[in-house]
């Protein structure tokens, strides 16, 4: 960087500082809230008592609970219903570890308010196998070694389950695309592709 641009830079920084902050209202809350966040509400306590009723179906069972509105679906599943097969990896909808089915579509349960699942059908990894027998996708992941540490695996399996709801005979490209919202840090990807392909073959065979 030349000296000139450098001095220019610093002068611009200073200039910006001179402006101070103006606060805009509306949809975009950040300026006011950024400050509020520092003060941090005492209301946290009041709010924690603000539970509301929720009714939904999880793995075909009707569930009625009282929850805080901020509860995510993953927290409901893991903490309230003790369905710990669903894993939380990033808790920000950035990895896919928490994938479950909501009305047979794949969603990130860590990044969905539980209240948004009201009246809907949720299927978790625990709901996929029946009578102790693995679902064909699960069996394919075992047979083709579509996992290493296994922590992202429930999410991978559920994404594959959603794929089979969406396409009856997905090709490799469709499989890759539909599985692309699930990160695997062990990077078992080649075997994950093999697993899903094999499950697809078996369901059409």
């Amino acid at each position: 960087m030349s000296e000139e641009t450098k001095s220019n830079k610093f002068s611009r920084r200073k200039f910006v500082k001179g402006i101070g902050s103006s606060i805009a209202g509306g949809y975009i809350l950040s300026p006011a809230i950024a400050k509020a966040a520092k003060k941090i509400s005492k209301e946290a306590k009041d709010f924690s008592e603000g539970k509301v009723p929720l009714s939904l179906k999880v793995n075909e069972s009707v569930i009625n609970v009282m929850i805080e509105p901020r509860t995510t679906l993953a927290e409901l599943l893991r903490d309230e219903l003790k369905l710990t097969g669903t894993k939380v990896v990033c808790n920000h909808g950035e990895c896919g570890g928490c994938t479950v089915l909501l009305n047979n579509k794949a969603v990130y349960s860590c990044h969905l308010l539980a209240l948004d699942a009201a009246g809907k059908d949720v299927t978790t990894i625990e709901g996929l196998s029946s009578n102790g027998k693995l679902h064909k996708i699960q069996q394919a992941f075992v047979d083709e070694d579509g996992l290493q540490c296994g922590f992202c695996t429930p999410g991978q399996v559920m994404a594959a389950a959603a794929l089979l709801y969406k396409y009856s005979k997905p090709d490799k490209q469709q499989i890759m695309k539909e599985m692309s919202g699930n990160l695997c840090r062990c990077a078992a990807y080649p075997n994950i592709i093999k697993s899903v392909l094999s499950a697809v073959e078996k369901s059409n065979g």
Partner: peptide
């Protein structure tokens, strides 16, 4: 945009 799961929501 994003991933299949995020596009669903």
């Amino acid at each position: 945009i994003a991933s299949p799961q995020l596009r669903n929501v």
